[in-house]
Computed example of a mutant assay.
Amino acid sequence: MIKRLEKIADSVTQSASKNSATSRLQGFWDIFDRDDEVLILISADPDAIASAMAVKRLLSYRVQSVAIGYPNEIRRLNNITMVERLKIPLERMHTLPVKDYSKYILVDSQPNHQPCFEKIEFDAVIDHHPVTKGWDAKFIDIRPEYGAVASMMVEYLRAANIKPSVALATALFYGIKVDTQNFQKKNMQAGDGISFRYLFNIANLNLVRKFELTELRRSELKYFRIALNEVKSRKERAYVHLGKVGTPDILVIIADFFNHVDKFDWVIVSGVYGEKLVVIFRCDGYRKNAGKLAQKTFGEYGPAGGHKEAARAEVPLKNLPLRENHEFTTNSLIRIITRHVK
């Protein structure tokens, strides 16, 4: 009897969820006309790219055309590989005739997240970040409790009875993995898991592994040699300064690498990118707080902070108290950290 009641309750919950998804889908579709030329805008990352692909699929055969634009440069090799392997049609925002479109959709962001977005009156905004003020749209679906917008888009597709292609399912699957940090983030709910499980049997998992593993260019292998030669340990803290780097992403990769080494409770990796010193902090987040350490040690020089287990500082070089012929070194990094933390 109890099991029967549980099944009935589950059935009611699923029915309510489907009705809600169908209602959202219809509300979204209602704002478009057959002759609309639609522009979807995103700050390009895996979740945003995949979600934009899903929105474009939802509008197929319902509008005249759909384009996806983004203002930021895609630097991460994982993301470049994703776009190239799946042949995703994206265009830089500055190359598009932005004013010529009849409808505008913002995905995985909100209008005041980017100055270039603030100038546009969006017809639809779909996001999972905390709600901000000072803007409006005809259709708004913002669910901060979701770990990824891709999870929300799977619900839209299923409500529309659209089975995603392998390429779309692969993108959505990867988008959920990245934004939920493999389901280790706290701000998730059952919808993320349900969408992820649905995509599991459709997505190309070998391609997903390729995206995840493609982090390094061959030209960046030299930074591992520098790091291994340069790393210094003080009180179970690993310090490394890599000098000038072509992208701050390599600092994250090196920091994560050293974070797997035994007896390193803290990893602090820095490098010079442009006119800024970028510092990456890593720890286990247990009785330690990387965000607080970043703020405490570099906050007086520029933006610094983050989460318990991972943090970052990006400060202008001109703000730093430099010695040693005005060059920042691993010893400089140690000196700044130990000045605040004994």
Rank of each mutant, 00 (worst) to 15 (best):
V38F: 07
E236P: 01
M82W: 02
S109F: 06
L25E: 11
G191C: 01
S270Q: 07
I334L: 12
F328H: 02
G243H: 09
R209K: 13
V12I: 15
L25Q: 11
K292D: 13
R339Q: 14
G27Q: 10
D100H: 06
D35K: 15
G291W: 03
I336W: 03
E275C: 01
A160Q: 05
D284R: 14
V149Q: 06
Y156T: 04
Y61T: 12
M93W: 12
K318I: 03
Y223F: 15
K263F: 10
N259L: 04
R57H: 04
Y239A: 12
R85F: 02
I68V: 13
E6T: 10
A310P: 01
I250L: 15
K222I: 10
S51W: 01
Y286H: 13
P111F: 02
N229Q: 14
A311F: 01
K119V: 11
K99R: 15
I337H: 13
K288N: 05
D35W: 00
L213G: 09
F264V: 09
N229C: 04
R218G: 12
A290V: 09
T180F: 06
P97T: 05
H340K: 14
A52W: 04
A124W: 05
E300K: 04
K342V: 02
V63S: 06
N187S: 11
K185Q: 10
A50Y: 01
L157C: 11
R234D: 13
M82P: 00
V231S: 02
G246A: 14
G306P: 03
L86W: 06
A21Y: 09
K119M: 03
N331R: 08
M153Y: 06
N78Q: 14
E309I: 00
L277M: 10
S109V: 03
M1D: 04
G285A: 12
A227Q: 03
T180A: 08
D127R: 04
R234F: 14
V315K: 05
E236A: 08
V149I: 10
K210L: 15
I336L: 15
K119W: 00
L96N: 06
P46E: 04
T297A: 15
M153Q: 06
R158W: 01
T95H: 10
N187G: 01
I162F: 04
K276T: 13
L317C: 00
L228Q: 12
I68T: 08
V55Q: 04
Y61L: 06
L77I: 14
F28Y: 11
R75G: 00
V278R: 15
A304R: 01
S151Q: 05
G147S: 09
V267Y: 08
